[in-house]
């Protein structure tokens, strides 16, 4: 049986790990390769780096982070943030990433996703969607760390990205990110039920029950969290034990 994946995420700025609350007030807290090693040892099912480096000159730092991580950690690695052209994806894959997550560049030019899937294969193209529930219960896409509304309906967008060859959707509840009150479950379920590809739920995890809810109520195939793992609130092992107890199939005890 396919297991539900638990994916720790590291937000990386200029080669250093940070984690924001609603994407502002970033707190510096460590070396990404060291963190990756810890997650690998704890039995994380995958690892995601989100590169939030703003300036172009500093963008090369992520390739070193990926390279050093891939040298030691034999688990799937996804990198998102600043993926704009095919060559960005090629460089990430060569550095050792398995998947590239496309966000703003897809909103700007949806065909980019089609081109990327054709060139590299759907299995390594993740479309990252930042969405919020707006007034009338509709779910809308936002870009630029949740600041810019696009007017695009999130469910329609997810379907379109699937048609264009996305292999997976990384769905962030932007109205929950950093709040620790759990995923936006109606949003998560709406997207998960609308597409036939895997959906990773992200944004708002503060308790282990939130991970369970994302799967049971949100119908997500995988759950991603940053701060609960990064600041040591919970270990990956605790998350897995909790999910298992709730009846969610997880990969157990990879190291014993």
């Amino acid at each position: 049986m396919l297991k539900v994946r638990i994916i720790p995420c590291l937000d990386v700025d200029k080669g250093r790990v940070v984690k924001g609350v609603n994407f502002v007030d970033l707190v510096d807290a460590g070396d990404p390769v060291e963190q990756a090693r810890i997650y690998d040892r704890e039995g994380a099912d995958e690892l995601t780096f989100l590169d939030i480096t703003a300036s172009h000159e500093d963008r090369e730092t992520i390739f070193d982070v990926v390279r050093h991580t891939a040298e030691e950690c034999f688990m799937p690695l996804t990198v998102g943030g600043g993926v704009r052209v095919l060559d960005d994806i090629r460089k990430l894959l060569l550095a050792g990433a398995d998947k590239a997550a496309i966000n703003t560049a897809a909103v700007k030019r949806p065909e980019f996703v089609r081109e990327a899937a054709l060139k590299f294969g759907s299995q390594c193209i993740v479309v990252s969607i930042d969405a919020k529930t707006v007034g009338d219960g509709r779910h809308e896409i936002f870009t630029h760390g949740g600041r810019n509304p696009t007017g695009i309906d999130a469910v329609q967008w997810a379907k379109r990205m699937t048609e264009y060859g996305a292999g997976e959707i990384l769905l962030t509840s932007m109205d929950r990110d950093g709040t620790k009150i759990g995923f936006n479950l109606p949003l998560t379920r709406a997207i998960s039920d609308a597409v036939p590809i895997p959906v990773i739920a992200s944004g708002g995890v503060g308790e282990l029950d939130h991970l369970v809810e994302g799967v049971i109520e949100g119908h997500a195939s995988a759950v991603l969290a940053a701060s609960i793992f990064h600041f040591g609130t919970y270990t990956i092992g605790q998350a897995k034990a909790h999910m298992k107890a709730a009846g969610v199939p997880v990969r157990e005890d990879p190291k014993t």
Binding site: M1, L2, K3, V4, R5, D45, E46, S122, Q123, G167, E168, P196, I197, P198, S221, A222, R251
Partner: peptide, 17 residues
Amino acid sequence: RDVVGEGPRVPHMGWNS
């Protein structure tokens, strides 16, 4: 997709026994 039918998500992605 042709083998597993409409139910499961494709790609088959993640850890399986």
